[in-house]
Design a protein around this nucleic acid. Structure first.
Ligand SMILES: [Zn+2]
Ligand SMILES: [Zn+2]
Ligand SMILES: [Zn+2]
Ligand SMILES: [Zn+2]
Lengths: 144, 144
DNA sequence: TTCTGAGTTGCAACTCAGTTGCATATATAT
DNA sequence: ATATATATGCAACTGAGTTGCAACTCAGAA
């Protein structure tokens, strides 16, 4: 799930046709170096450690990343979206888990749960592009 | 999915240990008489047709219903929750579909997709209480 | 009957996450 | 150097839901 600390984020940005800027690199790095999707405020805090960034800029960068498929916007069942890395060859699609006690969202191993969207054209004349699977419960930490 | 128009909502409230009041009945009816989960503003509008209701009261009634399991709070991938009827013997758990063009949320036939949460204790020491499956795509209306 | 207290509703003001408009800064092209 | 496009910042705004508190309702006690 985590990208290497030595990954060249500027390259990743270029490959995804995003003009590389210091702030964009910092935002991408903050998301990529995590094992779980983060809320915008958490990303904000992570970026602020090194660089100063305005929240509007952050949201605009997040929108851009989501648009380019670089990042995925996930709903955690509360009011704040979480942002995690998008799918790539070495980053498979996977389900997520949200702790209803502490609110933390965790990525689940892709093997634990997989669904083939292609096979779901069935029923009605809807076009299905994506499935979002969210497990809810109590995380390891909160079980005490 | 829909409850009968002639269903006695006051009885339903009592069975779920909720003090029956005119507003609570109106809110429950507005949710129950739909084929899809509604946003709070939609429920508001539906109730307003017959009775006047304050939004704080509505949210408090929704919280109460969700608490009692009478109603389920669903995230549609946008910022507004949707509220649909909770599980009963004649209202099975089911997945939902959200149109990314018009934002409408639809209930999917329970047969289309079913998952047994009991079988998912696997992996890690998490306790899993619930699975939320949301399909995204283009609805029949928006395909034109 | 009147009084009391729990439960219900309404109103104003607030929070929180995100957005809009517009001005400034930075980069790229001519 | 000048023009154009893109990126960032700041203030004010929005939409969905929440909080605090006062007013109302209604069952049971005195
Ligand atoms: Zn937890
Ligand atoms: Zn993930
Ligand atoms: Zn649609
Ligand atoms: Zn439903």
């Amino acid at each position: 799930m985590t990208m290497s600390k030595h990954c060249n984020y500027l390259q990743v940005l270029k490959r995804n046709s995003v003009d590389p800027t210091p702030l964009r690199e910092a935002v991408l790095r903050s998301i990529a170096e995590q094992t779980r999707p983060l809320a915008a405020t958490e990303i904000m805090a992570a970026v602020q450690i090194r660089t100063s960034i305005n929240k509007v800029t952050l949201y605009r960068i997040l929108d851009l990343f989501v648009d380019k498929g670089l990042v995925k916007r996930l709903s955690a069942g509360d009011r704040a979206f979480r942002y995690g890395m998008g799918e790539t060859h070495h980053h498979q699609d996977h389900a997520h888990f949200v702790c209803t006690r502490c609110g933390v969202m965790e990525c689940l191993e892709p093997e634990l749960f997989h669904m083939d969207v292609k096979k779901l054209h069935i029923k009605g004349k809807r076009i299905i592009n994506h499935v979002d699977v969210r497990f809810e419960g109590i995380c390891e930490n909160c079980r005490e």
